[in-house]
Write a protein that binds this DNA or RNA. Structure first.
Lengths: 226, 226
DNA sequence: GTACGTTTCAAACATACGTTTGAAACGTAA
DNA sequence: TTACGTTTCAAACGTATGTTTGAAACGTAC
C-alpha cells in the first residue's frame, strides 16, 4: 500500500458518518476511530475538516458529473433537429447516470443522495460555494434542457417548480434508507433505490406539467376551490 | 414586566438564529447576546438548550395544530355524505391555517417554515421524538384525509408520494428566504410565502394524481421512454 | 546499512461549547 | 423597613472540538 489506503479509509468513514449524522455533528475523532487511523491523519492528508468534506463530495461528484455530461450528449444527439428531449427522459438520465456509477453499489448511491440533501439543507456556506464553483456546468446544462422541455412555463413558475423537484428528490433520497425501512415494517414490501426513482420521476414530471398556479382566496373568505 | 419578557426575547432570538443557521450551529451565547440577556438565562428559564428548541416549536405549533384541527372539522362538515374533500382543498387547508395564525406576520411564517424543514432534515433525534409525541393527532388526521382523497392509489404508491410531497414542501420552505432572494436578484420578481404555497399546492396535487410508475429499463439498454 | 522523504502516532494546544454556581439585584407582601 | 421568593449576572466548570507538534516508524534508493 504505497500511497497508503489511509486516505480512502478516512473518506469511506467520513462519507458514512456525515450521511448518518450531518457535518457539524460528526467529529474528526468519530471519523478517525471508525476508519481506524490516527486522529492527526485527517489534517495531514486533507488539511482541515472542511477540506475533507469537499473531498468526500468530489470523490463521487467528479465522475458522476462526467457520466452525466455524456448522458446529456447522447440525449441531445438523439433528438437533434426534432423535438427536444422529454421531461421524463431528462429526469431519467440523472438517475440512470447515478446507477451506472462504477464502484458504487446501491447502498453507496443512497448514502450519497443523503449527502447531497444535507449539502443543500445545512447552511454550510463553504460547501455550497465549493459545489457551485466545481459543478456549475452540468447543472447549467440540466437547467437549459429543462427549459426546452417546459416551454409553456414562465421563468418564475419554472424556477419554483425546479425547487419543488429538488426538494422532493433530495429529501426522499436523503432519508431513503429510513423510509424503505418504515415501509418494510408497516406493509412488508421491499424497495430498491431504483424503484423509488421509478416512482419519483413521474411524480416530478406531472408536477412540472401541472396546470396554473392556484388563486389564493382572500383571508377569511370561503370561496370554493376547484 | 412581572413575568419578565426575558423568556420571549430568548424565544424570538432563538427562533431567528435557528432558522438562519440550524440548531447545532447556533450557540446559546449567540442567542443570549442577540436577545440581550445573560447567558445563564436560557438554562434558568428553559432548563437546557434542547428544551429551548422544543419551546420554540411549541410556541408556534400548539396554536397552529388547534387551528388546523378546526379547519379539518370544517372540511369534513362541508363534505359529509357527499364525496370526500379534494386534494387541493386538503393541502390548502394546511397553508391557509398557517396564514391565519395570529401574532405571526409573513416573515414569522416563513421563519417557521424553515424551522419545520430543518426539524425534518437535521437528525436531532430529540426533536423528532418531541414533535411526534406532541402533534401526532393532526398529522394522523391529515394522513387519513389524504387517503380518502386518493382512493385510486395503492398503499405503497401513496406512501412514496406523500414522502415526495413532504420533501418538496419541507425543502422549499426551509430555504424559502434564500430562494426568494435568488429569484429577486436574478429575475427581479418579489414573492411572498403565500405565493410560493399557491404554486406548490397544484404541483403537489398534480404529482399525487400522476399516472403509473415508470418502467425502469434494464441497465445499459437503450429502450425508448415515453 | 545508511540516509531521507513520507506517513503514523501519542500528546498537547487553544478554543468553544452547554451547564452550574453563588452572590447580587429586584419586586412584592407583611 | 424587613423578609423572602424570583430573576439576573459574572465567573467558573468540565468537556469536546479542530488543529498542531515533535518524535517515532516506515519504505525506498543509494
Amino acid at each position: 500500500m504505497a500511497q497508503s489506503d489511509t486516505v480512502d479509509r478516512i473518506l469511506d468513514a467520513a462519507e458514512e458518518l456525515f450521511a448518518e449524522r450531518g457535518f457539524s455533528e460528526t467529529s474528526l475523532r468519530m471519523i478517525t476511530s471508525k476508519a481506524k487511523v490516527n486522529l492527526a491523519a485527517v489534517n495531514y492528508h486533507f488539511g482541515s475538516k472542511n477540506a475533507l468534506i469537499h473531498a468526500v463530495f468530489a470523490r463521487f461528484l467528479t465522475p458522476y458529473s462526467a457520466t452525466l455530461e455524456s448522458a446529456f450528449d447522447q440525449l441531445e444527439a438523439e433528438c437533434q433537429g426534432g423535438e427536444p428531449p422529454s421531461l421524463n427522459r431528462i429526469l431519467w438520465a440523472l438517475t440512470e447516470s447515478a446507477v451506472r456509477m462504477p464502484q458504487r453499489n446501491e447502498r453507496g448511491i443512497s448514502i450519497f443522495m443523503r449527502l447531497l440533501g444535507l449539502a443543500y439543507t445545512q447552511s454550510q456556506g463553504h460547501l455550497r460555494k465549493f459545489l457551485e464553483e466545481e459543478y456549475s456546468q452540468p447543472f447549467g446544462r440540466f437547467m437549459s434542457l429543462l427549459k426546452e422541455a417546459t416551454p409553456e412555463l414562465s421563468a418564475v413558475d419554472r424556477y419554483w417548480r425546479i425547487q419543488f423537484m429538488l426538494g422532493a428528490t433530495a429529501f426522499t433520497m436523503s432519508s431513503s434508507d429510513a423510509l424503505i425501512g418504515i415501509l418494510e415494517t408497516k406493509i412488508g414490501v421491499e424497495t430498491s433505490v431504483q424503484e423509488i426513482a421509478a416512482r419519483l420521476v413521474p411524480f416530478l414530471a406531472a408536477g412540472m406539467k401541472a396546470p396554473e398556479k392556484l388563486q389564493m382566496p382572500p383571508l377569511g373568505s370561503d370561496i370554493e376551490l376547484a
